[in-house]
Design a protein around this nucleic acid. Structure first.
Length: 341
RNA sequence: GCCGAGGUAGCUCAGUUGGCAGAGCACAGCCCUGAAAAGGCUGGUGUCGACAGUUCGAUUCUGUCCCUCGGCA
C-alpha cells in the first residue's frame, strides 16, 4: 500500500540519490526506501547485466533486506544495453509506482541515465546494428580522420563539438544522420534537455577525495577476495568475449587482461584501482555540472544511519512542499534542490 | 677498503657533440543526448646529488666529496 497522497502523486515526484562509486549510496538507499515504504530503482549501466554481480557491486539479497530493487538484471552481457533501453524500463517502473501511490526512488551513479530520466532524451533514432557495423568498418579501413571528414560534411555543428579521435560519438552522429535524415545537432537543438516530466529532488552523496579513494581500494580488495576473478572467468567461459561492452566495464576488463596473460596479478589490481579512481573523478566532473543537486557531504565519522536521517529529512521537506503546491503549479519542476546549491 | 654501474619531475627513465630540461606512468582539470563503469580532450620549474674549476654560459667537460645498487674482499 502506497504512502503518497493523491495530491502529491499528481505532481509526479521523483527522488534521485546519486554520487560517485563507493560513496555508500546503496547502503543508505535501502534504509531510505524502507522509511518511505518504497523500492529502489537502480540507475547503473552495469548492474543491468545478468551474471555480473560482484564486479558491479550489486547489493546481495541480504543487503537488500526485503526492499525490491528494480532495473537490474535486464540484459545478457552480449546484448547492448543503453540509455534508451534504460529510460524506457525506468519510466515503466515509475508509472507502476504512481499507480500504487508509491514514491519513485532512483539510486545510482550513471549520470547520463539520470539526466535523461529527469530532463528527457532527444528523439533521435536508436542505434542500428547494421548501420553501426558499416560505419565501424569504414573507420577501420579508411581511418578515423576520413570518418570525421564525413561528419564535417553532413553535420558541421556536431563535428565542431567533437574531437576527431572520439570515434564513438562521431560514429553516433553519423548514424543518426543516416537514419533520421537530419543532423544530430539539429535534434539536440530542439530538445536541449528541456523536458521536465517530474517534480524532481536530486540528492548527491559526496565524500572527500582521500577517504573516497580509500573506500574504492577497500572495495576492490574485497571484490577480489570474494570471487571477482572467478566471476570474470565464468563469463568468458560462457562465451562472452572481451569485445563486448559489458566486459569492458571496470574490473572485468582488467581481470580479463590478467587472465589472458597480458599482465600479472599485481599489475591487474593496480589498474583496476587506478581506473576506478579515474572513473569516480569523471563522475564528479559530470555531477558538478548537473543543475539542482542538493549535496550531502558525508565524513568518515558519520554512521550510515546519520546519513539516512539527513536524506530522509530532505525528502520529507520535498514532499511537504509538493503537498502545499497549488494545482496551477502542476508540471513545474521544483526548485527545492537549488536552494542550497 | 677496492672495482664497476648509477644519482635528472611523486615513480621509472631518456637527453643535452656545453645554449632558459623531456617521455611514460602517477596525479590534476575538463567534455559528453541510445556504447556512459563506455569514449574523448588538456596540463611538465624540477636547487638535473653537493662543492669547486674551465667557459661568455655547466645539468652536460674536469676534480673532490656524499649517497644508492651490484661484485670482490
Amino acid at each position: 500500500m502506497g504512502t503518497l497522497s493523491a495530491a502529491v502523486c499528481e505532481r509526479r515526484p521523483l527522488v534521485v540519490l546519486l554520487g560517485p562509486t563507493a560513496s555508500g549510496k546503496s547502503r543508505v538507499a535501502v534504509q531510505v526506501a524502507k522509511r518511505f515504504g518504497t523500492e529502489v530503482l537502480t540507475a547503473d549501466s552495469r548492474q543491468a547485466y545478468r551474471g555480473m554481480d560482484l564486479g558491479t557491486d550489486k547489493p546481495t539479497m541480504e543487503e537488500r533486506r526485503g526492499v525490491p530493487h528494480r532495473l537490474i538484471d535486464l540484459a545478457d552481457p552480449d546484448q547492448t544495453f543503453n540509455t534508451g533501453w534504460y529510460r524506457q524500463a525506468a519510466l515503466a517502473e515509475i508509472a507502476r509506482l504512481y499507480a500504487e501511490r508509491q514514491l519513485p526512488f532512483v539510486v545510482g551513479g550513471t549520470g547520463l541515465y539520470i539526466r535523461t530520466l529527469v530532463r528527457g532524451l532527444c528523439p533521435a533514432p536508436q542505434s542500428d546494428p547494421l548501420v553501426r557495423a558499416e560505419l565501424m568498418r569504414f573507420a577501420r579501413e579508411q581511418g578515423r580522420d576520413r570518418l570525421y571528414a564525413q561528419l564535417v560534411e553532413i553535420d558541421p555543428d556536431s563535428a565542431a563539438r567533437l574531437h576527431p579521435n572520439d570515434e564513438a560519438k562521431v560514429l553516433r552522429a553519423l548514424e543518426v544522420h543516416r537514419l533520421a535524415g537530419q543532423p544530430l545537432s539539429a535534434i539536440h537543438r530542439l530538445h536541449a534537455f528541456q523536458d521536465a516530466p517530474f517534480s524532481t529532488l536530486l540528492i548527491g552523496l559526496s565524500r572527500l577525495k582521500e577517504p573516497l579513494y580509500r573506500r574504492i581500494e577497500e572495495r576492490i580488495d574485497w571484490q577480489l577476495a570474494h570471487g571477482m576473478v572467478e566471476e570474470t572467468r565464468s563469463l568468458l567461459d560462457r562465451g562472452y568475449g572481451r569485445h563486448l561492452g559489458a566486459l569492458k566495464g571496470l574490473g572485468y576488463r582488467q581481470v580479463a587482461a590478467y587472465l589472458a596473460g597480458e599482465c600479472d596479478y599485481e599489475e591487474m589490481v593496480r589498474r583496476f584501482k587506478r581506473d576506478t579512481r579515474h572513473f569516480a573523478k569523471r563522475q564528479m566532473t559530470w555531477f558538478r555540472k548537473e543543475p539542482g543537486i542538493q549535496w550531502i557531504s558525508v565524513d568518515e565519522g558519520e554512521s550510515p544511519e546519520g546519513t539516512v536521517d539527513r536524506v530522509v529529512r530532505l525528502i520529507e521537506r520535498f514532499l511537504d512542499s509538493l503537498e502545499g503546491m497549488m494545482s496551477s503549479d502542476l508540471g513545474q519542476q521544483t526548485t527545492l534542490g537549488e536552494e542550497s546549491a
